[in-house]
Design a protein around this nucleic acid. Structure first.
Lengths: 340, 340
DNA sequence: CAGAATAGCCAAAGCGCTTTGGAAGTCTCT
DNA sequence: AGAGACTTCCAAAGCGCTTTGGCTATTCTG
């Protein structure tokens, strides 16, 4: 069933039927109802390919997926996707993942924009002065950044959590508990979120006249192994920290293992706080010692990004609106007063 | 730059230019070269929307993503995706994720094939007599199943690992080590992979005159917490197992925690083997006691599925070829002879 | 060397939708 | 009653590609 058949069936022109279906005003209410009815009854669905060709709109949102033998997709991605899907489903929005060589995402961005494959894109894990962001901005396709960049002379729409505030609060709590030597096990420090977290922590320490020594910061991709290594390094130092703030639950697993291997205990010898993106399959309350966390559901963020993307596509949202979500600090058994 | 302009520029018809570009034989080699050159020089890229409308082919592969507030996307998905992306990238194949209500995926499948949004789809986590599989089979769109179903009177193309063989081997090893009371902590037992694993284990036990008691099988979605609960249940039983085979690394985390909580040790009191899909962020050799595993890279599977999907789209692969990958058994410190 | 086959090219007809630029019909106002 | 302003609909021109059905030369057959 296509437009031609449907309109013939109704003894109307394709124009009128098309307009009736798409809610244009220049068609009488009665006609519109008649058309709508017939369309529903015959299960008419406009052919998206044809519509695309005519309008240039695809009804899809895009994401450029960096790939390569050495590139691992972050498991956070899947949770974000859950949220995105939740929203997209109810709006018949599809998501197209365009895999790109991690060393050359630009070509792919240019391609999907030139081809008008998607109506909007989102970017994630931005870095300061991220090239992708500048590119997408000049290409003129609607977009939203999940996270933030820095160092641009233009504004852009984003959704981010208050990483700085979260780690500020976490550190402040630890300081209040009497800790003087804090350490940070961060994610990849070329990404903005990691920079913000470090900044938050430094600010909290500075407020009490303390500092975060260079040897007390470790940064690496967020795997269990890297958490372990970082913790070993820190704890075997001559001046080991009495509290660690950690950028991810997965790394925290490694930290816990290191603490055990060294015969130490949480929170007796070490207080631990980690950031929790809320995975269904790994929960901080189920750590050997329930883990204190800064918590923010990445899934909710996914849904919100989808919602805003949809709004931008339909012109309901404009401008460079930034949105920053507060982060909960959830205190559990893994923190205690500083030892000794 | 579109076809019209390009052909005008070459003083050729659109027909000829189109054919030259698409490798049709009825154009002379010299002309083809001339056309190819000009196309490259001017960066001509055929408009995919137009091509789609004309041919019905989209150059994308599809995946229907079950979503919903109560639905969690498996973290394995992201690893599979890495592999898929690896292959797809080099072939300019995009992947479109169509989120669907987990209770009604059928509508979405029908939509994407009716709309010809994708040239092929893949299914994952199939169950016995999986409706999606029957549906996709009758809809006539090229597809590949990642995993296997059972109980159909037709064959279908799939890629699966030898789950039965893997768990057979794992159990056999444990039996050889003298274990008599084995337990299985499985994934969702409505999925075929879980059924196969159970079958493999039963077969190994039966071969030695042993059996897998109902109380020694637990099945749940693969989270740390479920692993913990299952292990507690098993180990606090009046006849606790001396060895556990576990369907995932994430669940194994929970098992390890339970063992600790109960004051037991691995492998002294309990031998443990788990299946490892090879996550970059959680490695069995880094468990408190290095974990023995049945190992199969889900990422490689993703790449292979993409490759076969591409082959099916271009008609290079036909028929219902099933492909089953063997699984490595990797023995590490978490297994030992049965206690006392 | 006539007739058949083949190679190489082209005009035009789709693919199924949206949108432009009217054209008729109906009302309103002076 | 005629001019202007709406309202409601339509024919036809795209969107940019592929593909069908020829139409010329050129080459091959017997």
């Amino acid at each position: 069933m296509n437009l031609k058949q449907l309109s013939h069936m109704l003894s109307l022109s394709q124009t009128t039927v098309s307009r009736a279906l798409n809610g244009y005003p220049e068609v009488s209410e009665e006609t519109r109802r008649r058309v709508m009815d017939a369309a529903k009854r015959h299960g008419y669905r406009p052919n998206p390919s044809a519509r695309r060709l005519a309008t240039g709109k695809s009804g899809m949102i895009g994401y450029v997926l960096p790939t390569g033998a050495a590139v691992d997709i972050d498991p956070h991605f899947v949770e974000f996707l859950s949220g995105l899907g939740d929203y997209a489903r109810s709006h018949e929005l599809d998501l197209v993942l365009s895999p790109a060589d991690a060393d050359d995402e630009e070509t792919t961005y240019r391609r999907i924009v030139a081809n008008r494959q998607v109506d909007a894109v989102y970017l994630s894990s931005p870095r300061p002065a991220d090239k992708r962001l500048a590119l997408v901005n000049t290409l003129g396709i609607p977009f939203i950044v999940h996270g933030r960049s820095e160092g641009f002379d233009f504004d852009y729409p984003y959704l981010d959590i208050d990483n700085e505030g979260a780690f500020h609060e976490a550190a402040r709590l630890l300081v209040q508990l009497g800790h003087k030597r804090l350490a940070l096990i961060n994610g990849n420090d070329r990404e903005t979120f990691a920079i913000h977290r470090e900044r938050g922590m430094r600010r909290a320490l500075a407020a009490s006249g303390l500092a975060l020594g260079e040897r007390h910061i470790r940064s690496a991709t967020m795997t269990e192994e890297n958490g372990y290594r970082a913790a070993r390094r820190l704890l075997e130092d001559s001046e080991p920290p009495t509290a660690i703030v950690c950028s991810s639950l997965i790394m925290a697993l490694g930290v816990v293992r290191a603490v055990r291997d060294l015969g130490l205990t949480i929170p007796g010898d070490l207080s631990l706080v980690a950031h929790d993106d809320v995975f269904p399959w790994l929960r901080p309350e189920n750590f050997p010692v329930p883990l204190s966390t800064t918590r923010s559901s990445i899934r909710l963020a996914g849904a919100r990004v989808a919602e805003r993307l949809a709004a931008r596509i339909s012109g309901l949202e404009e401008g460079a609106r930034g949105e920053v979500w507060p982060v909960d600090l959830v205190v559990r058994g893994s923190v205690a007063g500083a030892p000794g």
